[in-house]
């Protein structure tokens, strides 16, 4: 890995941390509170018990996928461009799985875990799940995709090594010129 790539990888890692654990949390509380909060949904409880664990799990998944991607591409000695391009479907598969996992984590921490435990996350509500408005679900769906973009696409774009430098979608357009 070139030193510049190492620096960019480090920066994107730090940016990812800041995004997930500081900026995004602040945005949910201050920018999107109207979209997320609904009748009978205490926003702070929801963020602490469902939203944060779900996005932390997504962050761990993205970092794991990134490590696996870098490990594979560092170790590989492709003989030609066709062998390099064979990594493209693998990248897309990883990205799609990460998005699906992200949605699953949201469902799990907002609904499934409470159903399994037979508890109500909001005392006195009588509901075994967090009741998010449709706009809130839509927002979470979008945020999962943005998270995968920031936590997987960006670092793989900036730090894919050697001949894998341009295999990530969009890399030819962004990094391919002289």
């Amino acid at each position: 890995m070139r030193s510049q790539q190492g620096i960019l990888l480090g920066l994107s890692f730090v940016a990812g941390l800041l995004w997930v654990f500081v900026v995004q949390k602040w945005m949910f509380l201050n920018v999107f509170s109207g979209v997320l909060a609904g009748p009978g949904l205490p926003l702070n409880d929801y963020l602490q018990l469902a939203n944060e664990p779900a996005f932390t799990m997504l962050w761990i998944s993205c970092i794991s996928a990134l490590m696996i991607w870098l490990w594979i591409t560092f170790r590989a000695r492709p003989r030609n461009g066709a062998e390099v391009r064979r990594m493209k479907p693998l990248w897309w598969t990883a990205a799609v799985i990460l998005v699906l996992l992200g949605w699953l984590y949201q469902l799990f921490f907002s609904i499934i875990i409470w159903q399994l435990q037979g508890q109500s996350p909001v005392q006195g509500s009588g509901m075994n799940f967090f009741l998010l408005p449709p706009g809130g679900w839509l927002l979470l769906t979008m945020m999962v995709m943005i998270n995968v973009t920031l936590l997987f696409w960006l670092p793989t774009l900036l730090a894919s090594p050697r001949t894998y430098r341009l295999v990530v979608p969009g890399a030819v357009k962004i990094l391919g010129g002289r």
Partner: peptide, 21 residues
Amino acid sequence: ELDAAQSVPMPTFLSGAPWAH
């Protein structure tokens, strides 16, 4: 590699062969 480049779009070829740019 150069022979293979004749049958795929250049951006596709470049994605596996960055040296060509």
